[in-house]
């Protein structure tokens, strides 16, 4: 193990072990790389592109790119954070995100990341898509207006050996979470509120019924500290 196993992230030296991605190694070392579709328990998806960094001049996704010894990685530069703000804005106008009335507000990764990056407005015209709300299940409701297509629900369901949620369709107007029942309703799938998928959604799509606003606004997860601090604190824990 005499070989040098560190890379450079915005000038800081980051140690890593073989097979670690840039994002994992950076996080372990206490450095935050913004991310939405990545989750420590699941295989990286590589779709949101918030984790885009520049490695020796080339843009890559930090969540899917393996760390290489000696690489120079740019992360929180003006150029990259600018790109990330635009990506966030695209996500906000793609769906229907009315934060002030959303049960997830304050614990939403999308919202917290937008605060972190200083996104002040959605900037682009909204698309106002017509997306369904599914309240068929007795314990859990689905509000797809907020879906960011991260696929975490699909992966979490698989962990329980289920195919409740599957990513399908094409393009902005077609791509969606498809439910595993002929009716297309959650109640007609084998979903249970104790599944991993019930708790994984980073935004406010998959919500437990009848526990709304148990923690008041102002005292929620990202009201305590910004996502950049909480994210790495969780990694080092």
């Amino acid at each position: 193990m005499s070989e040098k196993t560190t890379f450079w992230l915005d000038g800081a030296e980051i140690p890593f072990t073989a097979g670690q991605t840039l994002l994992e190694a950076a996080r372990r070392a206490g450095h935050y790389i913004p991310h939405l579709c990545w989750h420590p328990d699941y295989k990286p998806h590589g779709s949101c592109k918030l984790c885009t960094v520049k490695v020796d001049g080339r843009f890559v996704s930090a969540c899917t790119t393996l760390a290489q010894a000696g690489a120079h990685v740019e992360n929180r530069t003006a150029e990259l954070d600018d790109m990330r703000r635009t990506l966030l804005q695209l996500l906000f106008v793609e769906g229907n995100h009315f934060c002030p009335s959303c049960e997830k507000s304050g614990q939403c990764l999308l919202q917290a990341t937008a605060y972190e990056l200083g996104m002040m407005s959605p900037h682009f015209d909204h698309f106002f898509p017509n997306r369904p709300v599914d309240a068929s299940h007795p314990e859990v409701m689905l509000d797809f207006n907020r879906c960011i297509l991260c696929s975490l629900c699909e992966q979490a369901a698989k962990r329980d050996g289920k195919f409740t949620f599957v990513m399908g369709g094409r393009g902005m107007r077609g791509r969606r979470v498809i439910l595993n029942s002929e009716s297309g309703r959650l109640a007609d799938t084998d979903f249970s509120s104790t599944d991993h998928a019930a708790h994984v959604c980073p935004v406010g799509v998959i919500l437990k019924k009848r526990v709304g606003f148990a923690v008041p606004y102002g005292q929620r997860r990202y009201d305590q500290a910004p996502v950049s601090l909480l994210d790495v604190a969780e990694a080092i824990k």
Binding site: S47, F124, L149
Partner: peptide
């Protein structure tokens, strides 16, 4: 029309 919709920049970007 042809974007597969997997990644944010292309899915939403092509539409904008």
């Amino acid at each position: 029309h042809e974007s597969c919709g997997f990644c944010t920049p292309c899915r939403v970007g092509t539409q904008v």
